[in-house]
Nucleic acid binder design. Structure first.
Lengths: 206, 206
DNA sequence: TTAGTGTTGTGACAAAAGGCACAGGTATTT
DNA sequence: AAATACCTGTGCCTTTTGTCACAACACTAA
């Protein structure tokens, strides 16, 4: 699995491959495990080799999704922490059983100017995350929740189906369950989707 | 001015100093000039040496602030564009007469692995911008507009005074003028601030 | 001084989003 | 089968935010 990561990132430097092997370790986690908790010091860069992790911020009564980490995705916030000691402002929780590559922060900063492929990796990670977040931000600012909800469902659908409860959707979109239930009903009435038990079928995605 | 930038970034490499001098150029812009327009290809990295630029996204009827660029600040989105050819998704408009350092994108990517100080610069720029944006994002998600408005005023106040019209504030916070006017009145009634003509005095910032 | 433009205040109303309460459904475990 | 824990639907009401319309004031340029 580590070798998949190495090849996906085109890490051709033999020396970096060796350093990675020597310094990192791989851990596995069950559903509902916390990978990172708010206000906790970040000591390792986390890369999800396999599985799914939800990274979110919370306040008193609500949550909002920052991003999901899927196979071969890197936690940008822990990458950022590699360059300066800091605490996490988010929580990260396992949604599907995970295999995670852990690299202590002290290596990551160092490699950035030592290995070209690593430099490319960190830069791309920052760029993609930043662009993604700007999109999220302006959607949040401009789009009514109904549209954000529908777009979100379309983006998460696999074979036009989303298997999430209304409560889960509420958490991911930063709102409450009742609001989601009502908006979904409205969308169903407009023949945009069909509601089942913990399952939403998208009918019309234009 | 360029030398201030060089010293602020601790660019000690003589060679990079020379490259910067040879490849960049400095331009000046008047208030209300567009520096970058939505959907336009980005060809240079823009660094504001002196002045103030507002970078924002717009949709049909509204705008929302992404960030301000003040003295010695770098446009993160144009930095991002240096690593892959792409179009702007934002507008940037001069708010105070500006002196801008322009560096063609082809150099920036190259320097990233060639000069340590440049590498540090780009990494810090991405990190700071990403952290800032995450804060903005969760404020937008969690805080009622009234609180976002007050916090924003406090953050922009100089000697407890903000010299902006309600219309400007509306643009920066992604809402409309009437809404801002009413919220400001409410805050004034609660003795949080005092309203004048194009001027807001903060009375109580806890 | 006057015309024009930008700024502020506000009433009336509409739409969007949230909170509370409760009813009934589904799934799982014991 | 009973108990328990989620899950979904919805009525009712409140708060927040947005829209339209209009009036008054302030500032600037001719």
């Amino acid at each position: 699995m580590l070798s998949d990561f190495i090849s996906q990132l085109r890490i051709t430097e033999k020396e970096l491959q060796d350093e990675l092997l020597a310094s990192s370790n791989i851990t596995t986690h069950k559903k509902a495990d916390f990978i990172i908790k708010n206000n906790q010091y970040i000591k390792v860069l986390k890369i999800v080799l396999k599985g799914k992790v939800r990274v979110y911020q919370e306040n008193a009564e609500r949550e909002i999704l920052i991003y999901y980490l899927n196979d071969m995705e890197t936690c940008t916030l822990s990458l950022s922490a590699c360059f300066e000691d800091c605490k996490s402002t988010v929580n990260a929780i396992v949604e599907e059983e995970c295999t995670i590559l852990n690299i202590p922060v002290r290596f990551v900063k160092n490699w950035n100017f030592k290995y070209k492929s690593w430099n490319t990796f960190t830069t791309n990670t920052f760029r993609n995350s930043y662009n993604h977040l700007i999109n999220q931000y302006s959607n949040l600012a401009f789009q009514p929740l109904k549209d954000r909800l529908f777009d979100y469902l379309v983006s998460k659908a696999i074979d036009s189906v989303v298997k999430k409860s209304h409560q889960q959707l509420a958490r991911e979109l930063g709102t409450t369950r009742e609001v989601i239930s009502r908006l979904l009903k409205k969308l169903e009435k407009n023949d945009k989707l069909h509601l089942g038990q913990k399952e939403i079928l998208i009918l019309d995605n234009n």
